[in-house]
Simulated scan of single mutants.
Amino acid sequence: MRTLGLIGGMSAESTALYYAHLNRLARERLGGLHSARLVIVSIDFAPLAEMQAKGEWEAAGLMLAEEARRLQAAGAEAILICANTMHLVADAVQAAVDAPVLHIADATADRLQAVGSRRPLLLATRFTMEKDFYRDRLAARGIDAVVPEAADRQALHAIIYDELCQGLIRPPSKAAVLEMIGRARGIDGVIFGCTEIGLLISPDELTLPVVDTTLAHAEAAMDFALG
């Protein structure tokens, strides 16, 4: 089994999900007492979140690139950035290491194609919904991701940073996000495009196909590890 390197802490809540998913997948695929071979660096999210808010993406990329180098030196044979938004700097991270950076949008596109969704609703941070880095990568695979209206994007961004990233799960916020989904027109699927969304809503609560990016990323990583 190959060793996976995880850049976590963005947030700690979803990094715990990555750890759980990867170990469960190893056990399911190999049986018995098998678990995933992992090296993990978990950053302090507050300074990085401040960089995001200020638009200091180059500095953020340098920070994650250094963490990727540490993981590679510790034996990682592939790197996972355990957050959707920070794939904005995936190219900078990849330039810093020889190990492949397994891109979360590629894993998401694979799952969307598998369930036949070509026009999914993207639920994510404002950065992921409004910047081109994520939707363009999906578009290259023939997927036209749509985003909520401006007011809903702002509300969802606040729910993610002020609540989910801090371990707060609030029923009114869940209801608000379900209403956002209900207002979307012409969609044929939903992307949980923030690694914390699955903490708030279960795919079973929706009638449309759902791709939870945290799980899709973990599955793609385990494919690599066992490939």
Rank of each mutant, 00 (worst) to 15 (best):
G32D: 01
L88V: 12
A158I: 13
L17S: 14
R29G: 00
A175L: 14
I81L: 09
T3Y: 03
A140P: 08
R29S: 02
A175W: 11
L38G: 06
L168V: 15
E149H: 13
H21N: 12
K174R: 15
R27A: 06
M180C: 10
M63L: 15
D223K: 09
E67I: 14
L62F: 13
M86G: 01
R118E: 00
D98Y: 10
E196T: 12
I79W: 01
E13G: 11
L226V: 05
P47H: 09
G198I: 14
A12W: 15
T207G: 14
K131F: 12
I160Q: 04
A60T: 04
V177T: 13
E205A: 12
D204K: 15
G32P: 02
Q72A: 11
R137C: 03
D223I: 11
A158E: 15
A139E: 00
I79N: 02
Q94D: 04
L88N: 07
V146L: 10
L156Y: 07
E56P: 00
G5Y: 03
C82N: 03
G31S: 00
E77C: 04
T125K: 00
A60C: 05
E219G: 04
A96G: 05
I160R: 02
H87S: 01
L6K: 02
D91Q: 06
A139D: 03
A145V: 09
